[in-house]
Nucleic acid binder design. Structure first.
Lengths: 175, 175
DNA sequence: TTCGTCATGTAATGGGTTACATGATTAC
DNA sequence: GTAATCATGTAACCCATTACATGACGAA
């Protein structure tokens, strides 16, 4: 998850951790910002696996030394990993978080794959909606009005995401 | 989270783990069902803390022995814990999961508290929306259209939840 | 007799968080 | 000189999950 978001952002341009986190926050939405306690270990892990590397040569170690900031860039292996991520969405690609990660980097995803991901997500949601309605049928009679409201709202939310997906798919088809 | 859901359901009637899980699924929505790997440890934990207890006397150990199922009921301490949960929503009550847990047991929550929780949630969402819009202003220019779509959809979702909350608050005020 | 469901549980793992610790740089 | 922000990192914990293991019961 985090792994792909990092690779995707570093492919646009090499960055150091602190800046990277700000970009991540921009992409993922500010309320679910990644903490440094996740980010830095993730960076070291990616480096250990050879998917990213430190851009070594500090251009000018003259006056402004600052705190040594470690700028990472994506290695060829990392690039390959990222493209394979966008190219074959695994079975988890329809889950909420994965899907968001895919969508965030749709710009670097081929068109047919975009459609496939969007439709996969839609299918998943419709499945989910069926389950929601089914469980709603079973429980609504004996549930208090608040629990009922909560369930109805859940259904509404899924429906509205399906409509949104349909717009995206239509837009994609019309190039 | 799970803790309160368990207490809330057991207050309605004593249950064993397996059945409890089905009810939980009914309340929380079927797609985010609690796994046994979470439920059973949670039950033992609650028991260890004296908030629930096994309803000891098996009525008839005659023919139908079945697999020994362990039925739990809420102790007075557990009842107290639950009422204190519904009565003073902590600062986390406006978070997604907590809020859902509160709403699920609104029926056992006094009216003024209901309004307070709903309004707290609304305030939290409006804050969130301000952050989303703010971050959107900063990044939208240089973001690709897909990332933009994703962010706009995020804003839409929050807006629609605010409208929903407003309906609930209005309904609450008009008794 | 085998399959589905009821029923309880453990161990390993996942994917993060919070709190803490450090220190350098910038702006007032 | 002090506060805010930039910048990196560690350790402890949280709250769940998945995969596994066990076993009894009812129905086909």
């Amino acid at each position: 998850m985090l792994e792909f978001a990092i690779l995707g952002l570093l492919l646009e341009s090499p960055l150091h951790g602190y800046e990277l986190r700000k970009r991540l926050t921009g992409v993922l939405g500010p309320f679910r910002a990644i903490s440094y306690g996740s980010l830095y270990p993730a960076l070291r892990d990616l480096q250990a696996r050879g998917l990213i590397a430190e851009t070594s040569p500090k251009p000018m170690p003259t006056v402004t030394t600052k705190r040594a900031r470690i700028v990472y860039e994506v290695t060829p292996a990392g690039t390959e990993r990222f493209t394979s991520f966008v190219a074959n969405p695994g079975p988890e690609a329809w889950e909420d978080e994965r899907f968001a990660a895919h969508l965030a980097f749709f710009a670097s995803t081929p068109t047919e794959m975009r459609v496939r991901i969007l439709e996969g997500r839609r299918a998943r949601l419709q499945e989910r909606m069926a389950m929601l309605r089914e469980s709603f049928r079973h429980t609504s009679e004996r549930l208090d009005p608040y629990a009922t409201q909560l369930q109805e709202h859940g259904i509404d939310r899924v429906e509205s995401e399906v409509r949104w997906l349909e717009e995206l798919i239509a837009a994609e088809r019309s190039h």
